[in-house]
C-alpha cells in the first residue's frame, strides 16, 4: 500500500491562489521551501549588486552583508541538508532531470566561491579559521567565477529547462493565480 498520508482536506477542482500555494509548499516541506526561497533571494540580491553596484555602491552594503552574506551562509547549511535529502530519497531522484543535476554542480561552485569571498570577513572565518588557508589558492579567482558562473547558469538553465526557468515559471504563475473553483452547483 502507498504511504499513509494525512494531507488536509481540499476542495476539488482546486481553488488555487497565492496563499494556497505558499501554504502548501510550507506544509509539504519547510526544507524545500527554505531552499527555494533562499535561492531566489540570493539570485535577486546578487544580480542587483552586480548590475547596480557601480552606481549605488555603498548603499548596497547592507544587502551584501545581510541578504547575500548571512542568508548566503544559512543557504549553505540548508543546501547541504537538501542535497543529503535528495541522495537519500528515491522519490526525489525519480523526478529530477539531468539539467537539475548540472544545476547542483553550479550551486556547489557558487557555495565554494561564495564562502571564499565571504571568508575575508565573517561569518565563516570567525567560526572555522582553517578555511582561510584551504580556500586561499582560489581566493583571487573566486569573485569572477561566482559572478560569471551565475550568468552562465542562467543561460544554461534557460536553454535546458532547469532551475532558473522553473523559478521564473513559478513566480509568474504564483503572481497570476486567479483560478477559482468551478464547483458551486450544490
Amino acid at each position: 500500500m502507498p504511504k499513509e498520508t494525512s494531507a488536509p482536506r481540499k476542495k476539488y477542482p482546486p481553488e488555487v491562489s497565492k496563499t494556497t500555494v505558499i501554504k502548501g509548499m510550507l506544509r509539504t516541506s519547510l526544507l524545500d521551501s527554505a531552499f527555494h526561497l533562499l535561492m531566489a533571494i540570493l539570485l535577486i540580491t546578487g544580480l542587483i549588486m552586480d548590475i547596480l553596484g557601480p552606481w549605488l555602491g555603498g548603499w548596497l552594503h547592507w544587502m551584501r552583508q545581510i541578504a547575500h552574506g548571512y542568508l548566503g551562509a544559512f543557504f549553505v547549511l540548508i543546501f547541504i541538508v537538501y542535497l543529503a535529502k535528495i541522495l537519500y530519497s528515491k522519490k526525489m531522484r525519480t523526478v529530477l532531470t539531468a539539467t537539475n543535476y548540472v544545476d547542483f554542480l553550479f550551486y556547489i561552485a557558487f557555495v565554494i566561491t561564495g564562502i571564499t569571498i565571504a571568508s575575508v570577513n565573517s561569518p565563516w572565518i570567525t567560526y572555522i579559521p582553517e578555511l582561510a588557508e584551504v580556500l586561499a589558492p582560489i581566493a583571487s579567482y573566486a569573485p569572477t567565477i561566482h559572478i560569471t558562473g551565475t550568468y552562465v547558469w542562467i543561460l544554461f538553465s534557460t536553454v535546458f529547462p532547469g532551475g532558473f526557468l522553473h523559478g521564473l515559471a513559478s513566480a509568474y504563475l504564483i503572481r497570476h493565480l486567479k483560478k477559482r473553483s468551478k464547483r458551486g452547483i450544490q
Binding site: S89, M92, V95
Partner: peptide, 13 residues
C-alpha cells in the same frame, strides 16, 4: 515547468 520536483506525488501513487 513550475513543478517543484518535490516528489510527494511519487510516494502516494
Amino acid at each position: 515547468y513550475a513543478c517543484s520536483r518535490c516528489g510527494e506525488c511519487v510516494d502516494v501513487c
